[in-house]
Amino acid sequence: MGMFSRMFGSKKSESSGGTSSSQARAETLAHLKDFVATRPGCEAFIEPPTRVTQTTMVVVAESGEWTRRRVPDQATAKKVASQLGVPAFDVNLSGYPSRMREWNEKQRKKR
């Protein structure tokens, strides 16, 4: 067994168990749909990939509560936001909404 097989598993072991990419996509979409359906005033903020993470999408509710999920690329993120019926923004251009920071601060104070 090679070093990379030990670190990341082999294709053979991935297909016999674990989460498939189509299952992961379905779970991500279901989570985002539920989040948007149960919280008013949601907006999506697309975060570009870095050396450490792939493209992500943060959905922020009117209350400031938020959730983040990985997406394959920016085009897919825009497509998902459109399917969810929420506006999508490039976080590098718009920044994060202040309500998100305020919500985070309230959560820290509760702890």
Rank of each mutant, 00 (worst) to 15 (best):
R25D: 10
R39L: 00
L93Y: 01
E14A: 09
A61K: 04
S16L: 11
S13E: 08
A61G: 08
F45S: 00
Q23D: 07
F8W: 12
K12N: 12
R70A: 07
A26D: 08
Q74V: 15
P97D: 07
M7D: 05
D90P: 10
P72M: 10
K110R: 15
Q74S: 12
Q54H: 12
S21R: 03
F4Y: 14
T19E: 10
P49A: 14
L29C: 05
M1S: 05
A30I: 09
K78P: 04
D34F: 13
A81L: 12
S10F: 14
W103S: 00
I46K: 06
A30L: 15
T38K: 15
G64L: 02
L93T: 08
F35N: 03
T76M: 14
L32T: 09
L29D: 04
A81G: 02
P40K: 11
G17S: 11
A77I: 03
W66C: 02
G95P: 03
E105S: 13
S15V: 04
A61M: 01
R111Y: 09
K110P: 13
M100H: 02
V91A: 08
R6T: 06
R51Q: 14
A30P: 05
G95C: 04
E27Y: 15
T50L: 08
S10L: 11
R99C: 02
S10V: 00
T56E: 04
A81Q: 05
P87G: 02
T76N: 07
V80G: 06
Q107K: 15
S98F: 04
R68E: 01
K79F: 13
A24D: 02
G2F: 12
R101S: 09
L29M: 11
Q23R: 14
Y96P: 02
T53K: 14
S15W: 01
S5T: 13
E27A: 08
S20A: 12
S20M: 10
A88I: 07
P49L: 08
R68D: 03
P40I: 06
F89T: 00
T19M: 14
Q74K: 11
R39Y: 01
E43G: 14
W66D: 03
L29H: 12
F89P: 00
N92V: 10
W103K: 03
K109N: 15
R111P: 03
V86D: 04
T56S: 06
A81N: 07
S10H: 09
G85M: 11
S13Q: 11
E62Q: 14
A75H: 05
F8G: 12
M1T: 05
V58C: 07
T53L: 15
M3N: 12
R99A: 02
Q23C: 01
M57W: 08
V80P: 05
M7T: 12
V71W: 01
R68P: 01
T38C: 04
